[in-house]
Each structure stands twice: as C-alpha cells, then as structure tokens.
Design a binder for these strands. Structure first.
Lengths: 170, 170
DNA sequence: CAGTATCCTCGCAGATACTG
DNA sequence: CAGTATCTGCGAGGATACTG
C-alpha cells in the first residue's frame, strides 16, 4: 500500500489492505488456495523474485494469514499453510475471480472453478444478505455509520442524506 | 501490481488486480461507495496526492469502473460515479470490511455498516453458495479446473488429488 | 474547484549469486 | 530444496506550484 495516513482512515478496509494489499500478496494467497505449500511451488508458479517471496511469506506469517509448518517433525524445511484467518479470505478471492470472469474475461471460460471439497459441487455465487435473509444486489446497497464511527467517518458518508430523503418521501 | 507475466497467469484474479490492485485504488472505490463523487472529495478524505488521484481516476474511468459525468449539462467539471461494473465490486469491499472487522479490529465496533438502501436494514454477511443453495464455509472449499483451464493451470492445482482421494474412500 | 505539470524520493521488484 | 544476501532500476507516490 501506500500512505502513512492509512491508520488515520479508521477503516477495516485500509487495515486489511495493509496486510493483503501489496503487490503479489493476493496472487500468493491464490496459489495457497490452489494447493501450493512450498517455497518453490509459489516461486515457480508465479515467477516471483525469491527475495520478494521471502518478504511476502514472512509478512503473511507474521500477520497470521499463513503458518509455517515443518514438513516432518523436527525438519528445518517448512510449508506455508492457510490459517483460518487465511481461509476466511476465500470470499475475497472468489469475489475477485467472479468479478474478473464477469467483466474482464467474459468470453473465455473460467480457468478455475471453486467447488465444495466434499461433494465437488461448483460454487454458484457470492451473495450479500440482510439479517433477515433477503438477498441484495450491489445497487441496492448504501452505507451508514457503525458503532465505531468517528466524526470524520460520519462526515465522509455522503450517501446518508440521499437515503434519508428517500425514506421521508414515503 | 507488479509482474509482466501477469497475463500469462491466465487468471481472472490477476486481471482484476490489474485494474483495482494498485495502491489507493480500493480506497478510492471505498470513498465512491461512501458517496464521494468529486475530485476534491476523494482528495481531502484520503489525503492522496493530486497527480496520483488524477491517474487513478483516469484508469478507473478507462476500464469502466467509474464514469465521468458533467456536474450540469454542458459543464466542464465532472463527477465520478460508479458504473454497474463498479457497483459490482461491493462484494469485495464488504468482504474486506468484514475480514478486517473480524480479524484485525475485533475490539472497536465497525465504523461503517453496509445497509439496504431502501429499508436501512443492515447487511448481515456475505455467503458462498453452491448452485443448489447450500451455504459453504471457507474451509469446505476447494478448487478444480474450469472450462478455460490450460495445462499449466491444471498443473498448478495441487488440491485436486487430495479431494479425489477423499472421495474414493467412500 | 478541478485538475495538470514538474521534480524528487523511496522501496518494490528483478536478477543473480551464495549457503546449509 | 529453501531460503538469504546484494546490487540495481524503475515507477509509484509525495509535495508543490501553476492554470482555466
């Protein structure tokens, strides 16, 4: 990422990007989801420079997205595996895949399909739901301040007036 | 992003990152979702350098994520608005927000909540579904080659043997 | 206000060689 | 095989000044 002000933004998106937003990191995680575990796997599949890979893997381990696991008990060599925190990024990965499939590579079929491990059934889609189970389309979404909102955050949320205005009409 | 090999990876994730993976871009989109539309809005809220902002906005417009709309008919000034392609990134934004809330800022309440615009009801969660409506957890996911898979892609997918092995057991 | 133009710096990333 | 170490370049990003 970029800015030093990133912490001042008081935003989970910014802090998430601070960990997974650097170049290569998402691709490394993609390989991890695809089953790569060893240094050389990541290196060969991605063609990433070895020193950069080292740095990225270290950071991902430090932040808890990956764990370093010895190949055998007592071995010096390690594997890199997704932690639950890392697996939880599946939504992001699938989201990126589907967005890319939909808007950027509409012609060629998806090179990769996410499936349910147990049954092999394909993942259909990612859906956004309200608490009472209603499925939402992106266009139906808005934003409002949450419990941790600062004054700055509230000032930033320009959509709110529009939403309120619409509601008053009824 | 980084590599020149990015096209060789034949991957929607890589092509998606090519557009939205650069530093600042996701944050700019976040502001767009939060209601910012004007150059100065983005600039002030993010503290991004003006020249960088120009470049990012241009790229996002060129790739169809944002549109430049004149403020008034015939005006020279523009607003930047999300296209459907851009709104469709909501899943990514919400995914990042929730991942950050869950794993990085567990204590402080979410500064921002996504809601249904019409009713104001909060978005509960993002869910991954199979085609027959079964909700999946990240840990239950695997990957298999899709219709557009190349030999290289298939070679990269190490998880498949594991999945098959499990199935044979039954 | 909405940019464009210029200059400068830092660090990402590539390449390559070395070590246990 | 799994890294670490070193050297280098380029480009992203910051700061600032200028324009319609």
């Amino acid at each position: 990422m970029s800015p030093k002000n990133i912490d001042k933004l008081n935003c989970s998106i910014a802090s998430a990007l601070d960990i997974i937003g650097e170049g290569w990191t998402i691709l490394i995680l993609r390989e991890a989801f695809f089953g790569s575990r060893r240094f050389e796997d990541f290196q060969k599949h991605l063609g990433i420079a070895r020193n950069i890979l080292t740095v990225r893997l270290n950071k991902l381990c430090d932040s808890g997205v990956l764990v370093r696991v010895p190949i055998k008990v007592g071995a010096k060599r390690n594997e890199y595996r997704l932690t639950p925190m890392g697996s939880d990024l599946a939504v992001i990965l699938i989201g990126l895949t589907q967005w890319g499939d939909r808007w950027l590579n509409p012609t060629q079929g998806a090179p990769v399909t996410f499936i349910e491990r147990a049954t092999g059934k394909a993942v259909a889609d990612i859906a956004i739901f309200t608490r009472d189970g209603k499925k939402l389309k992106p266009r139906e979404l808005a934003v409002k301040p949450g419990p941790g909102a600062t004054a700055e955050t509230i000032a930033r949320l320009k959509l709110i007036p529009d939403v309120r205005r619409k509601k008053k009409k009824n």
